[in-house]
Simulated scan of single mutants.
Amino acid sequence: MADDLDIRRTITSLVDEEKDLRSRLAAGGLSASDEHARLQAVETELDRCWDLLRQRDALRDAGRNPDDAQVRPGSVVEGYLE
């Protein structure tokens, strides 16, 4: 099970990839369709990571073990309303 630091490192890596994709598209090094497909996957993975961190915080706040948090499928976390 990943700890909070591991999850935050993954988030940082995904944000860096997101920036790189946008830069490559702007520079003409990537097609819009390729950028869109990968960007969508990156954004879904980011949402899953943030969801996992929120679950861990909620469990911790409730006096429970944060390692009981579960990574939820993208189809679940993408369906949340902000």
Rank of each mutant, 00 (worst) to 15 (best):
M1R: 13
M1N: 12
A2K: 11
D3E: 09
D3K: 05
L5H: 14
L5V: 15
D6T: 04
R8M: 12
R8H: 02
T10M: 11
I11Q: 03
I11C: 06
L14Y: 03
V15M: 11
V15P: 05
E17Q: 10
K19R: 08
K19H: 05
K19L: 09
D20A: 14
D20W: 09
L21A: 04
L21Q: 02
L21K: 01
R22A: 14
S23Y: 03
S23A: 13
L25F: 15
A26L: 10
A26P: 08
A26G: 08
A26V: 02
A26K: 12
G28L: 04
G29F: 05
L30P: 09
A32V: 09
A32T: 06
A32E: 14
A32R: 10
S33C: 05
S33G: 04
D34I: 02
D34H: 13
E35G: 06
E35P: 11
E35A: 15
A37T: 15
A37P: 01
L39V: 00
L39G: 14
A41T: 04
E43S: 11
T44E: 09
T44H: 00
T44L: 12
L46M: 03
D47W: 06
D47P: 00
D47I: 01
D47E: 13
R48P: 12
C49T: 01
C49F: 07
D51C: 07
L53H: 04
L53R: 02
L53D: 04
R54M: 10
R54H: 13
Q55I: 11
D57V: 15
A58V: 07
D61H: 04
D61C: 00
R64E: 09
R64C: 01
P66S: 01
D67H: 14
D67Y: 15
D67P: 04
A69V: 10
A69F: 10
Q70W: 07
V71S: 13
R72P: 06
P73Q: 09
P73H: 11
G74K: 02
S75G: 12
E78F: 02
Y80K: 09
L81P: 05
E82C: 07
E82Y: 05
E82T: 05
